[in-house]
Each structure stands twice: as C-alpha cells, then as structure tokens.
Computed example of a mutant assay.
Amino acid sequence: MTEFTGTYHATIDDKGRFVLPSAFKKEMGEMALEPLVIERNLFKNCLDIYPEAFWKNRVEAFKSTLDPFDEEDDAFLQFFYENFIKVGMAANGRINVPGEYLGYGKLTKSVRLIGMGRSIRMWDSAEYEAGRMDKSTFAKRFQEKRKKKQEGQ
C-alpha cells in the first residue's frame, strides 16, 4: 500500500520545476507513470500533490455528496475544480508547477515536501518553519484527541 511519509527538501528552478525526492517516486511505483494532481490547500498557503489514482477517489467521494441539479452545489463543484490541475512527471522525477500555483503557495526557491499518507504537501521552507506545530503542542493535542475518542466510546 502506498503511503507517503517523511520530510524532504527540494529546490524550485527558474522555470518552476522541482525534482520529486526519490523516496516519494519509489513509493508511487507504477503510479509514477500517471499524471499527478496539484491542489491548492484550502486551509493554508501550500500545495497538495496526489497521484491521479488517489485523486480520483477523492473527487468521487466529494461529488457523491452533491446534487448536480442544485445551483449551490454546482457553484461548490466549480470552486472545487478551480483549485487543482493535472501535471506530468518526467522520467527523472521533475515536475513543473504552474506559476499561479507557485504564487498561491508562496513558493520561492527552497521548498519542503512532507508525506501526508495519500498525498505530498509542498511548502515554502520559510513558511513551513514559521507555522510548524511544535512538539509540546502536538503532544497536548494528541492527548486531547485520545481522551475525546475514549469518552465517545
């Protein structure tokens, strides 16, 4: 089962390209031959990168909650589709990120790529460090979540 983990550094060149770390490319296996989907993260100024197979599952789950004949749902779907783009990956792992996506993520030269299970999150290195959760906050929130789950059982 494919699951992206770990944190890696990469560099964006002047043409908006970066090379996917070999650990992520290896984890993709045959999916590395398929298109990738780059999505503007809805909560933070970063990008999420999905293998197309994982993205299709996400799209179907989202669309199944909507009524195609409802005007509000139609606008909702349009917003959803406006926030991602399909791209290819060269044999060497190089990916070209469109300029408007680089701008959204405030991505400059140095980026951080974080495995997020089914996706890879792409941050500008400085933005990532500025907003990164510290260990004590993680421990506290983890304990709160566990307690809440135990109380719900």
Rank of each mutant, 00 (worst) to 15 (best):
A10H: 09
F80M: 10
N41Y: 04
I49E: 05
L77T: 02
L36R: 08
F69H: 13
G6M: 04
V37P: 03
L66E: 06
E34L: 06
R121T: 15
A90I: 06
G88S: 01
G93L: 08
I95R: 05
E52N: 02
G88I: 02
N83H: 13
Y101I: 06
Y50W: 14
L102G: 04
E71K: 15
T11Y: 05
E30M: 13
F43C: 04
P68T: 09
S110E: 15
K109L: 12
T65H: 13
N45F: 09
I49D: 06
D74H: 13
M89H: 08
F43G: 09
E39R: 12
L20R: 10
I85E: 11
K109P: 07
V97G: 01
E52C: 00
I38R: 01
D67H: 11
R17T: 06
P21E: 15
K56N: 15
E30K: 13
N41W: 11
L107G: 08
N41L: 02
P21W: 11
H9I: 04
G99N: 12
V19A: 14
N96L: 13
P68N: 01
G29K: 09
S64C: 04
A53P: 00
G16L: 05
E52W: 10
L102E: 01
N96Y: 06
E30C: 07
Y81P: 05
M28P: 06
E39C: 12
T7E: 01
I120V: 14
D14M: 00
Y104G: 00
N96K: 14
F4L: 00
C46V: 02
R94P: 10
D14E: 09
F24K: 12
A91P: 03
G99Q: 09
W123R: 08
S119L: 08
V111Y: 09
N83D: 08
A91R: 03
E82Q: 07
L47W: 01
K25E: 09
N41F: 03
R40L: 06
E34D: 07
K26I: 11
W55P: 01
G103Y: 12
G93F: 05
L107I: 15
F80W: 06
N41S: 09
S119G: 06
V37A: 03
F62Y: 04
F18A: 11
E82D: 14
I38K: 04
R118S: 12
Q78V: 14
L113A: 09
A53I: 04
D48C: 07
A10T: 12
I85F: 06
R17P: 06
P98K: 03
L42A: 12
F69S: 02
G93R: 07
R58K: 14
V111W: 00
K109D: 14
E72Q: 09
Y81L: 14
K26F: 03
